[in-house]
């Protein structure tokens, strides 16, 4: 037996078989062997993160595997041109963006005193998942929990944590059709309403609002933020603005189309609000 275990070929075959089993099991997204998925995504996350950092050096270059070839090519070319200068530049830029990021986090800290704020990088869209889910580089090791609110700088709502891995997690954006937000229209004549993702509108980066309280005037241009009453999002995170108003199926139902303030295309860094009592404090 020992001999067999020491047999190199047997070892290889065993590893291959184990890997195959893992492949087969994790092919099903809803498989219960999430731990495998977590372990498997940990190194991937690392790679994705690395690629993203490279991407940061060159403005406008898309991160991820698809951009890898381009990155390599341009990287080589540019290195040849002025390696030293570019590196310096990149370092400076990195420091600057890090600086902004820390500053933003500091601002958010002032707004959300009762929360721990964790910064994170978007390392790609969740492979195989819904089109609009994002993978970020923090996970259960960082104390992230499902349903933690996710913000962008300037206190703009991105979404919430949908699932967590050990070192990465998936953010579901507010425009996802299963999402709902207890919202507040801040203008005079404002009040409570519900913002919902919608399968049709999300393709355009929009979402809907309904269950508008009777006292709300509701006008185009109204600013909508979180109400803090729904149990997930704290009060005062900016959601978006009303761009269209229409009557619902019943004469008394009012609906509105909301354009979120968040620009999903330009999203690079996010902040996760973690409740302090659930953290190590």
């Amino acid at each position: 037996m020992n001999k067999l275990l020491k047999n190199r070929k047997f070892q290889i075959i065993s590893v291959v078989i184990i890997l195959l089993v893992i492949v087969l099991f994790s092919a099903d997204r809803y498989s219960k062997v999430n731990i495998i998925r977590n372990i498997a995504t940990a190194p991937v996350t690392f790679v994705q993160k690395g690629l993203n950092t490279v991407g940061d050096w060159f403005d406008g270059i898309v991160s991820g595997i698809r951009g890898y070839a381009v990155v390599i090519e341009e990287n080589t070319k540019l290195r040849n041109e002025n390696l030293e200068l570019k590196e310096k530049n990149a370092a400076l830029k990195d420091m600057k963006s890090e600086n902004i990021r820390l500053k933003d986090a500091l601002n958010l800290k002032d707004i959300f005193e009762n929360y721990k704020i964790m910064g994170a990088n978007i390392v790609g869209s969740d492979p195989g998942s819904f089109l609009y889910n994002y993978r970020i580089d923090v996970g259960s090791l960082d104390g992230i929990e499902i349903d933690d609110p996710v913000l962008a700088a300037n206190n703009v709502l991105v979404g919430r944590i949908y699932s967590i891995g050990v070192t990465s997690s998936v953010v579901v954006p507010l425009i996802d059709e299963l999402n709902g937000i207890s919202a507040w229209i801040t203008q005079e004549g404002g009040g409570h309403a519900v913002v919902k993702g919608d399968i049709e509108y999300k393709a355009d980066g929009l979402c809907l609002m309904d269950t508008v309280n009777e006292n709300v005037k509701l006008e185009i241009g109204d600013i909508v933020e979180t109400s803090g009453m729904g149990g997930i999002y704290p009060k005062g995170i900016l959601i978006g603005e009303v761009i269209e108003i229409y009557k619902g199926k019943s004469l008394i139902e009012r609906h509105a189309v909301i354009r979120p303030f968040i620009d999903f295309n330009a999203l690079e860094e996010v902040y996760i609000l973690m409740e302090k009592d659930s953290g190590e404090e």
């Binding site: 519900v194 919902k196 309280n213 729904g230 149990g231």
Partner: peptide, 24 residues
Amino acid sequence: SVQTIALISEHRHSIQGVIIQKKM
């Protein structure tokens, strides 16, 4: 109450098959 609406709506992803309908 609005509070109840808020809680139900915000947990929409986990509370399924619930409709909030206005009535006079």
